[in-house]
Design a protein around this nucleic acid. Sequence first.
DNA 1: AGCACA
Length: 307
Amino acid sequence: MAASYYNPPPPHSSYAPPPLPPGTSPYASYRHAYPPPPAPAYGGCYDHSEPLPPRDELRTLFIAGLPGDAKDREVYNLFRDFPGYVSSHLRSSGKSSQAYAFAVFADQPSALAAMTSTNGIIFDLETNCTLHVDLAKSNSRSKRPRTDDTSPDSSDKKTRHPREFPDSGAGSNIHMSGMSNSSHSLNGYPSAQSYTNFEPASLSKDPSAFVPQNNPPCPTLFVANFGQACSEQELIGVFSSCVGFIKLKMQKKFGAPVAFVDFKDVNSSTEAINRLQGVILYSSMGEGMRLEYAKSRMGQRKRDKHP
DNA sequence: AGCACA
């Protein structure tokens, strides 16, 4: 097990209290707006009316260790910016002081990446609630998690806007496709603005702040400007969801920690740059991390010492 | 604003 993995508490003193009182939060409504009654029709997760993915791979996370007063919003904010995040469901145990939740992802690698990044984090500094995140026993019964066929508008008609985010603030479950936009934050607490609207966070990146790519494309990426509190496991959790990911090595013996991430080819590394550039990690407090092509490929010994 | 390891 990843028993050695220990995530220090995030530098936030608390969970970025939303600017709205709890009662008036725009999220307050989805608490009681859950359409599906708690009918755990598990055991048969097959739905033959839908063209399911070939193997019904588990892509739902089970989150334990939540405090009893956890809010949907908190679970949502925890996972919303992980690539592939689809939706989350909070289940309060009622009598107990513990709650649990499920987070649905587009595929298992995305789910595993989010799992690695969130497992073991201290969710509540006051009660020292530590999250235990694992793959769920079965996938959540979602309406239409992902349509791989070419009939996209059977249940999704109102969200067909080219502007990606529906106003799911008062919806039932919290859906969001963080797939192909270069999401700007993984920590879930980007700024107060995200509590009041669902603008894609990427628009807060002004083009002038973009990183010039000086180095020629390389399958290995150089990663900098992530927080000191960031663990290698957290980075692996983020990067391992990228196609072609091979390995990640963190280097923190010098002042600012950096990391090298190896991909199978430059297509994959380029895709990862585009996807994760500027992303703010959960453990981060400042700017997002900066990705560049590395100056040399990881693990490639220089064979041309002499001509 | 920082590019190591083999």
